[in-house]
Design a protein around this nucleic acid. Sequence first.
RNA 1: GCGAGAGUGGCGGAACUGGCAGACGCGCUGGACUUAGGAUCCAGUGGGGAAACCCGUAGGGGUUCAACUCCCCUCCCUCGCACCA
Length: 839
Amino acid sequence: MEERYNPTTIECKWQKYWSDNNVDVTVKDPARQKFYCLEMFPYPSGKIHMGHIRNYVIGDVITRYKRMRGMSVLHPMGWDAFGLPAENAAILNNVHPRQWTLSNIAAMKSQIASIGCSYDWSRELTTCLPEYYKWNQWFFIQMYNRGLAYRKKSFVNWCNACGTVLANEQVIDDKCWRCDDVVVQKELEQWFFRITAYAEELLRGCDTLSGWPEHVVTMQRNWIGKSTGAEVLFAVDGSAETIKIFTTRPDTLFGATFVCLAPLHPLADTLTADKTALKQIIDAYGKDDEKLGLFTGSYAINPVNNESIPIYIANFVLMDYGTGAIMSVPAHDQRDFDFARKYNLPIRQVIVAPDTQPGTDLTAAYEDKGTMHNSGEFSDLDSEEAKALITQSLATRGLGKAVTNYKLRDWGISRQRFWGTPIPIVYCDTCGIVPVNQDKLPVILPEDVVLTGTGVSPLADVEGFVNTTCPKCGAGARRETDTMDTFVDSSWYFIRFCSRGDEPPLKQDNIAYFMPVDQYIGGVEHAVLHLLYSRFFTRVLRDIKVVRFDEPFQRLLTQGMVCKETWKCPTDGWLFPEQVRDGRCLLCDSEVVRGRTEKMSKSKKNVVTPDELTAKYGADTARVFSLFAAPPEKDIEWSDQGVEGSYRFLNRLWGLIYNNLDCINVTSTVAKGKIFRKTHQTIKKVTTSIEKDYHFNTAIAALMELLNELSAFRAATDEDRAAIGMALRSLILLLAPFAPHLCEELWAVVGEKPSVFNHPWPQWDELATKEEEIELVIQVDGKLRAKQMISADLPDDDKKEIALGNAKVQEHLRGKNIKNILVVRGRLVNIATSGDSIA
RNA sequence: GCGAGAGUGGCGGAACUGGCAGACGCGCUGGACUUAGGAUCCAGUGGGGAAACCCGUAGGGGUUCAACUCCCCUCCCUCGCACCA
């Protein structure tokens, strides 16, 4: 054994060993319990960053731990390889997107390897390869045949910078989720997946996601956005037209004093004479600064009381939710209230708060439930009851019905880009839309393409691709030239991983054995996007009999971001840490300000790269620090000194074993003493920290404690030496998931056969964790007054006696009446007094 | 505005089901070893106080023998949703 810890040599050696000996290859063993641990696969940008590292290391610890617990663990990795950056790089550098992507993959793969993650690379998948995207096309056709994929013309979200459309989920605050450019509306023919057909099921499924963070489930529920209410028909006075409105408050129908249409509502144009004014309202649509209205000059008939009320066009009424038209009840909706005040429209109260009288001067809308008022036959009823009764009464007259609405829209999957899965559809002049025959799949993405980035699908110019024959009639026909959203690729990749690369992708017994994913780990940025699409896809796959379950991801861990402090100079802007010395900028000598701790980013110059880190300290230090700095779901603050601390810890462990090699093979039948006890306590603490909520930071803290105790201990007897030997072996095993290279090496040093990961996880003996002596904590009236060492097995009554007998305690009891004495968990005595003087 | 989560030493963070607040690490202070120390090792380290002791988990109230933990109010931060009728 070398005297010094040398991470570089050790890490190379064991990475080679693991790879040469297939240590990380999944063993599918039906006799054992399976565990599927998955980290969200990366887009191959070419560079691994600390966020990836943190994600993968968390997954790797869980994987290695579960393997040591004897489970058959599936831990795969692959590449989300289609997407825009490849295309942009192609335009910029004149390389083919495939070449750019594949060389990035090679680079990232070696970076991932250098942190020692135990992936089963025999299952590696790359979504831009035909053998993968063939199945996107196959699923598309299955969905087309079931009416779940359809084509329609509609206004879509268009990103000019990306030159393509975006799904609703991919628009964040009116900006593109990827490039942050402003998203505009454009009318296009697009392919959609009918995710709305599963809206109710996806919503109900949320109740079963007990292994997910609550806020992620809430985000999914909000996104689906179910609301129940009624559709009500308002006739247009003096016309055959009717306006269909949606409301969640049919109970307030008698209070409707006007009707509002969305600016793009079909009737808006018909009813409005002043086209210039209408244009202004259309321009103001969706702007959240002010509510604008335009009176059409027409009136609508309220079906519950035949009252004639004005019809307005309003910029705040959404066209793509409900029916694009609303009834306005200013007394009971704040938005309508504001609008009514602005345009001097009547406000009529029809719901009265419990225990109050109808007021005359409302200062704000009353939006709660209450008692019906001024509502014809429904007056004096409870407003909640009235909802159903009014809806029913409208329904019998054919003027309304109960309706459930969802905010969720169908998933638009067409992208006017090259680097994606071709949509397997052919347009024939006689047969119309015809799917490609399944035995002709995959539709291969052509090689020779001129990429211009102009926003027209590049495939449209590839004649050899576009021109084809109709699968139905054989006549000349044209292919669809849009490609699929890359979120299609990631909606089922976890199923592909169940089978090796040399096996069929949808092999039933593999899917049945490994799915669902037991632990999924990734960033919270996919809380709605990828996770909702995957839940949808899984249900579709269930309905086409590919899988037999509803939910793909049993437990979800959304890891926190990797952050670091920032430095800013008033003249030179953001600074690298090495540009700051003694609070001054090395460029201009100004005083610098320490900025907020923020997510690592190039622009803020607060990035630490995995390469420099592993070069300096080795992968194990990087792993231990990123796990020790905070629990996985929280953000971590990167600290160079903290990394040093983790490095010191591993060095001290090395030194400890080096100094105690003589203890390794000493055996003894006597199993007691403080080292023995501490070891069992540590096994318990580490195991429960991992099992309970993956709080690796406290697990590592416990290992540090054991190390500290061992370092301070001086062995006197063979029993002591045996205890140390046993403690060291346990320490190596317990630390192995966190610092795998070091522990593999130390495992060899103590004379064991590799791999340490084939060795069972240590067990603790509950009896052995018990202290013989404890420090009895004595309180008087809840305040700590004394501590005293006592034997742990004394009965409670003796502990009370000891507490009362303590000199310090007696001082504090002087002049007081003892009311009660409590013994808590055998460790604490609290003497409660009445405070009254005895004298 | 609505919803969720959080607020603990100089810093990152611990604390089971209400039971010793501050585990572990960083930093800092002192010491040892050293030609040297930004290496290593040892000791100390919430604040106040000479001490007894007092104070202390964002702030204020409450429940309890006992509150970081439970309840009510306020402040602040982070995230999500945001004219969804």
